[in-house]
């Protein structure tokens, strides 16, 4: 029983990392209407940028993270505008857009390998001593990840419901043509979405790297399929669905890890196949996105 409670605790940590990543991915998927296979490498780039700022520039970790998040928002928006923009304006078929993001994934990963090499690195952070909460053991780092993720989710909620750009994002995501007819220009909305995606990817990547206690250039790519499982479980383009999907996938993977520790993330694939077979529109249905 205690093991189950502990697994649920770890599940909440995984879910927190996953929620950051899945919301970032699903927002962009919904607004631009194609999947981004370079997302894992954007996460990894954010991690290495943060790491470079702490080691080479000797910045405090929190400051380095903030700088990296802002920088990655700009880099992601610029890359999307420069590389994806021409294909989207030409109305290239989805198949081609997917290939371009796949190519971007290879390029970004090669850039990371060329600059930082193939070895594993680690953030040196305090707070690795676990704290006891009854049968539950969580480190201050893990608690910070959970707290940070909740704050980010509330911020995303406020952005989507209280700000003009957030409302426009939801409108474009729901129905681009209808949004355009209503006087919403999709271009700035798409730019803002990519920037938010880059920021969330960086937060998710750094959380993942800190939680896993080390990272290598394959960090994001290895985690990408779990993120996609959470996104599709929640329904593409549904940020609240992605949060729910992240919670489900996070808990399921950690509980399964009690019996099959080496296959814990692969359970996400089983979840994905079940969703595609039983409810391809996701838990929270969205018309026109299947």
């Amino acid at each position: 029983m205690n093991e189950l409670i502990q697994a649920i605790g770890f599940g909440l940590v995984t879910a927190s990392v996953l929620a950051l990543a899945a919301v970032g991915l699903t927002l962009q998927f919904g607004v631009t209407n194609y999947a981004n296979f370079a997302y894992g490498d954007i996460m990894t780039l954010g991690v290495y940028l943060t790491w470079a700022l702490t080691t080479t520039a000797h910045l405090n970790f929190a400051i380095a993270l903030v700088v990296a998040v802002v920088a990655m928002a700009g880099i992601t928006a610029a890359v999307a505008e420069g590389v994806m923009g021409p294909f989207v304006r030409r109305r290239s078929p989805t198949v081609v857009l997917l290939m371009v993001t796949f190519g971007l994934s290879l390029i970004l990963n090669s850039v990371i390998l060329a600059i930082w090499g193939a070895n594993s690195d680690a953030f040196q952070l305090p707070g690795t001593q676990p704290l006891h909460f009854g049968p539950l053991l969580l480190t201050p780092i893990q608690l910070t990840i959970i707290g940070g993720s909740i704050v980010a989710m509330v911020a995303i909620h406020l952005l989507l419901t209280r700000t003009g750009i957030g409302k426009r994002m939801r409108a474009v995501s729901d129905n681009r043509d209808l949004a355009r007819v209503s006087g919403i220009s999709p271009t700035p909305v798409v730019r803002a979405t990519w920037a938010i995606t880059g920021a969330l990817a960086t937060l998710a990547g750094v959380s993942l790297a800190v939680e896993a206690s080390q990272f290598s250039p394959g960090l994001g790519e290895g985690f990408l399929f779990v993120i996609f499982a959470a996104v599709i479980l929640g329904g593409v383009g549904r940020p609240y669905g992605a949060m729910l999907g992240a919670l489900v996938v996070g808990l399921v993977t950690e509980v399964v890890a009690l019996w099959l520790p080496q296959y814990k993330l692969d359970v996400a694939f089983v979840v994905l196949i079940l969703v595609l077979l039983l409810r391809p529109q996701g838990l929270i249905a969205s018309a026109g996105k299947v």
Partner: peptide, 29 residues
């Protein structure tokens, strides 16, 4: 068989990506 129902091309691409990672894990572990 699992993905070729009336689904858009993204879903197949995503599922193949996932299947590849799972195959890697199975062969390695």
């Amino acid at each position: 068989l699992t993905v070729f129902r009336r689904l858009r091309s993204d879903y197949l691409a995503i599922t193949t990506l996932c299947a590849g990672t799972v195959a890697f894990d199975i062969v390695t572990n």
